[in-house]
Design a protein around this nucleic acid. Sequence first.
DNA 1: ATACGTGCAAAGTATTTGCAAACGG
DNA 2: CCGTTTGCAAATACTTTGCACGTAT
Lengths: 149, 149
Amino acid sequence: MGERHEHAGWARHARGVADSVGRRSGGARTAIVDELAALGCCASPQELHDRLRAEGRSVGIASVYRVLDELSGLGLVQRVDLGDGVARFEPIELTGEHHHHLVCVGCGAIEPFDDPELERAIDRAAGRTAFAVDGHDVVLRGHCSDCAA
Amino acid sequence: MGERHEHAGWARHARGVADSVGRRSGGARTAIVDELAALGCCASPQELHDRLRAEGRSVGIASVYRVLDELSGLGLVQRVDLGDGVARFEPIELTGEHHHHLVCVGCGAIEPFDDPELERAIDRAAGRTAFAVDGHDVVLRGHCSDCAA
DNA sequence: ATACGTGCAAAGTATTTGCAAACGG
DNA sequence: CCGTTTGCAAATACTTTGCACGTAT
């Protein structure tokens, strides 16, 4: 498939997990999993729907929401909130590695970044709380190099 | 720890800033600023509206949204997204100190925490990106002590 | 007096749900 | 065949906007 299978492994994994919990594989979920796998970063349900439509793999918007919710429940995708009231989703890597997001307050650009030292600091901070923390999100806001000018 | 005047200073400051940019002081904004100041942590527009109503200081829900948007634009309140699709807001301290949030995936409890070491790590991480970062949000998810049992 | 603030209701979005038809096993 | 998945449309939830009226300055 043209999509450079950046996350082909993830797509296979996702299908495997869905199968293993007895989910049948219909066209909508197949298409959505492919689309998510081809994603560079997070996308909103509407964006996914538009992309699918553009590829001729039309899927009802309701199915996009349903499948995302389902994948989310299976721990296969993660919801990302960037502060603009639109929910976005992205695959959770099998390897456990994950990134966070930079948001440009000027142009709205979204860029992923990862930083091992930050991850360690978060783990340490989590250990100091009274919660049994098992997940986290970080959003950094500012101006991208273009908008800073 | 009732509502005392935990953030009485903030309320005064907020009014001062609003005045200084030529905003007239009507009943809605006064009530909303007081309510925000009495808040332990963040609250959604609907929660603020309900609390105000419970206190007999009824305010239209539209005014709640409008005032929050205005205060947000003045840098007096901050929007917080906890991942459940509901926007929440809280005062920004004059001192610049700020906290982040712990969310219990079991019962939905929200608890603030702050961690200076984490702040420093975030600043360092921000410096390694290509953005001119000037703000950030962190959400830690897990189980609170009650739900962990 | 006059311009700004507010409440109400209507209009917009974003997301969820009910249901009949299509489909996979 | 039979139960799951899907698409459509209606329903809901959340937020914004239009407008007439009240109110601070």
